[in-house]
């Protein structure tokens, strides 16, 4: 019958239109920004640097090994290594980044920096409302802007952050046990042979987690 297809099409459209008042399935529009869809946990957008504790500088996990800078496919990371050292989360003195810039106008959110980081220092953020009126300066994030606390990491990726914390705690426990054993051995040695030799410095093993 001529016009049958048009009638069918109109019926389908009418069904969807009427259905949108009763069924959530058929009403797919969300009135952003007043309304928002529920965030998805695995979402990734741009990288940030994680720090432990209160102080963004003292707790910064990054030791500026520059692996992410080398592996970054579009080369959007720029790191300047420090000359001096600061203690990391196990107390071992490590370098820190004097400058850590990510140009998010170049970054393509591929997550390879996160995968190659051996120190769990760089993670993916979920912030997407980054519009700015300064194309160059506004989209170039420096170390201060990139540093975000571990608590923040827990709020955006709770499952992943818990896993990372467990892994780091395990490593820390291992290092502490080793340090303790070394200290005991040194003490025993000192007791056996009195002019005391300088206490043996515990050697922290290089953390290996994170390389999926």
């Amino acid at each position: 019958m001529l016009g049958e297809g048009i009638l069918k099409g109109l019926a389908e459209t009418a069904k969807n239109f009427a259905g949108s008042y009763v069924s959530k399935e058929r009403l797919t529009t969300v009135q952003y920004p007043e309304e928002r869809v529920a965030p998805i946990e695995a979402t990734r957008n741009f990288p940030f640097l994680v720090y432990d504790g209160e102080d963004a500088f003292a707790g910064l996990r990054c030791v500026s090994c520059q692996i992410c800078e080398k592996e970054c496919p579009p080369k959007c990371i720029y790191i300047e290594k420090s000359k001096d050292k600061k203690p990391d989360y196990v107390g071992k003195p490590q370098n820190y980044p004097v400058r850590f810039d990510i140009d998010i106008s170049v970054c393509m959110s591929c997550q390879i920096c996160v995968e190659v980081c051996p120190f769990e220092a760089i993670k993916m953020d979920t912030v997407f409302e980054l519009a700015t009126d300064d194309r160059f300066g506004g989209l170039l994030l420096d170390r201060e802007k990139l540093s975000k606390s571990n608590e923040y990491y827990h709020t955006i990726h709770p499952t992943e952050a818990t896993e990372v914390d467990a892994r780091l705690a395990e490593e820390k426990a291992k290092v502490e046990a080793k340090a303790k054993a070394a200290a005991e051995a040194a003490a025993a040695k000192a007791a056996a042979a009195p002019p005391a030799p300088p206490a043996a410095k515990p050697e922290a093993p290089k953390p290996t987690g994170g390389a999926e």
């Binding site: 080369k75 720029y78 810039d101 140009d103 106008s105 170049v106 170039l140």
Partner: peptide, 9 residues
């Protein structure tokens, strides 16, 4: 060039 150039760029 973008102002954030480094390395080879």
């Amino acid at each position: 060039y973008e102002p954030t150039a480094h390395d080879a760029v």
